[in-house]
């Protein structure tokens, strides 16, 4: 079972990203769970969402405490939120980030080699393609580059299920672009 924790701010679509990933995994025939850290979220507040993916039925119905992967939708969160909390040793961190890797390691408060770190300039790409700083789907692209959790066609299918065609189309484009630009640092 893979557990993913999503960090975002209210309104950035962290829960939607968690859902899209779960939907895609379900399309792939996996067992899934996706849920937010439940609170009366308001736009702008830091929030969490979770995705569980497994080959077997998922028994657990508690929150995720020691994720395999964390995804950070907004680099400004790094200052105030310890995104590595509970992250399994050698786990994966996917960050929306375009600065220098050294600075990032410093922000994360981790040493090289402790975790895998993958970045993509999601905000820039989202503004280019969606004309809005909604980074959730871009981060799915980066996540897929680092870890083949789901098939690309399944994410595409999930997007078309969830959104009207024009929006789904632009997001598919964004995911592809973010996938291309994502790199391990």
């Amino acid at each position: 079972m893979i557990e993913v924790r999503w960090h975002g701010r209210g309104g950035q679509g962290a829960w939607t990203a968690a859902n899209l990933l779960a939907m895609a995994a379900a399309i792939d025939g996996k067992h899934v769970q996706s849920f937010p850290a439940f609170g009366p979220e308001r736009s702008g507040a830091p929030i969490l969402a979770f995705t569980r993916i497994s080959d077997k039925p998922i028994d657990l119905h508690s929150m995720v405490y020691d994720p395999d992967i964390v995804v950070v939708l907004d680099p400004t969160l790094l200052k105030n939120v310890k995104v590595t909390e509970g992250l399994k040793k050698g786990g994966l961190i996917v960050v929306n980030y375009e600065g220098s890797p050294d600075k990032l390691y410093q922000l994360l408060g981790i040493g090289r080699g402790e975790y895998r770190v993958v970045i993509t300039p999601a905000t820039k790409l989202a503004l280019e393609i969606l004309k809005r700083p909604i980074t959730n789907t871009a981060m799915i692209g980066a996540l897929l580059k680092a870890e083949k959790l789901v098939r690309f066609e399944s994410i595409e299918k999930a997007l078309y299920e969830r959104f009207p065609k024009p929006i789904a189309e632009r997001n598919v484009e964004l995911i592809k672009k973010a996938y291309e630009e994502a790199r391990e640092v």
Binding site: A18, N19, A22, M23, A25, A26, K30, H31, V32, Q33, S34, F35, P36, F38, I58, H61, S62
Partner: peptide, 12 residues
Amino acid sequence: LDGFFLSHTLEN
């Protein structure tokens, strides 16, 4: 059904 743990949790 448990609030949030089921009501708001996506499953296949």
